[in-house]
């Protein structure tokens, strides 16, 4: 179903009316950032932009900020140079929210109810939240290359969550490595943005470090999206043959309680390893296993204040 020709979109517009697409209902979460936002436009987030905010910044001469409503008499009298002093405030600014999605073949794991569905829910939720907060939203997807046809530059358009849900739901994840993420990183706006990085992160360590290194100027929230059975099969006993979506490697596993324990251990091991890697770059990751809950993200941002 996927065409490799980038001129052709990998979704068709009539799919907007599909049942699958309609089943994704974006849910909002609340986010805030600790550091000042860099946007010029007035918005939700604290910033260092001078404007009509409520956060006092400094005193300045009336000539510098010619707004007589903000004249401060006490400050003017205190000034040894006898100049009229005006209170200068920081405005609240907008932020650009970017979503970098990994669309390599491993993200198709689990079929219609799997990781792609999870990614779709997350993307729609972020787009909706950004719209409701008044921030611009940008979307970048990559597999071995940047997926141009899915790219959405920063925009405040309404209806975006549904558009993204529709186009993602039918984007066929493909490609056996995620080095296209490096190209996607280059397209991210230069000014500090809030970047959600969605992937299962079955990446080589050097790629992960490189991507995180290039995003060091941004506020990065890694969203580790795993299926409910990323490591541990559903069956408790039996033979199951598996084939890697990316490398094509085949393996036979005899599912049994002993192996189950080891697989669970491997999953926890990978989790803590990813956690350490992200934290070493200064980012706290969020793990989703099987299902997406926007409250998890709200709590995440509240906790980080």
């Amino acid at each position: 179903m996927a065409s490799n020709n980038p001129a052709w979109p990998r979704y068709s517009s009539n799919r907007h009316f599909d049942n699958n697409y309609a089943s994704v209902e974006p849910e909002e979460f609340h986010y805030r950032i600790r550091q000042p936002a860099s946007g010029l436009r007035p918005g939700f987030h604290r910033s260092i932009q001078i404007g009509s905010g409520d956060q006092f910044r400094e005193y300045g001469s009336l000539l510098r900020q010619p707004d007589p409503r903000r004249l401060d008499l006490r400050a003017s009298l205190r000034d040894p140079l006898q100049q009229l002093q005006v209170r200068i405030y920081n405005q609240r600014s907008t932020l650009t929210v970017c979503l970098l999605a990994d669309l390599t073949a491993s993200m198709s794991f689990g079929g219609t109810g799997g990781k792609l569905r999870l990614l779709t829910e997350i993307a729609a939720s972020i787009a909706l939240s950004a719209f409701r907060t008044g921030d611009a939203f940008a979307f970048y997807a990559a597999d071995t290359i940047l997926r141009q046809e899915l790219l959405i530059p920063p925009t405040r358009r309404s209806g975006l969550p549904w558009q993204i849900a529709g186009q993602l739901y039918h984007a066929a994840p493909a490609g056996n490595h995620a080095r296209g993420m490096l190209a996607a990183v280059q397209r991210v706006p230069a000014r500090t943005s809030l970047i959600f990085l969605v992937s299962d992160f079955h990446w080589p360590n050097d790629l992960l470090h490189e991507v995180l290194g290039r995003l060091s100027g941004h506020i990065v929230v890694p969203l580790v999206s795993w299926s409910a059975h990323e490591y541990v099969p559903a069956a408790t006993f039996g033979l199951v043959a598996i084939r890697d979506l990316e490398s094509g490697q085949r393996r036979l596993l005899l599912a049994r309680p002993g192996l189950r324990a080891r697989l669970t251990k491997a999953q926890h091991g990978r989790r803590s390893q990813l956690h350490r890697t992200f934290v070493s770059h200064g980012h706290e990751p969020v793990f989703f296993e099987g299902h997406y809950d926007p409250r998890q993200l709200t709590e995440y941002f509240l906790a980080r204040g």
Binding site: H202, Y231, V240, A241, I242, L245, S247, L252, K265, A266
Partner: peptide, 22 residues
């Protein structure tokens, strides 16, 4: 056996019994 798709075969721990069976 029909193989199931999987996202991270290489990440799964080695299992000698399964390997022997394969």
């Amino acid at each position: 056996l029909d193989s199931r798709d999987h996202s991270c075969v290489a990440a799964l721990p080695a299992d000698s019994l399964s390997r022997a069976l394969q």
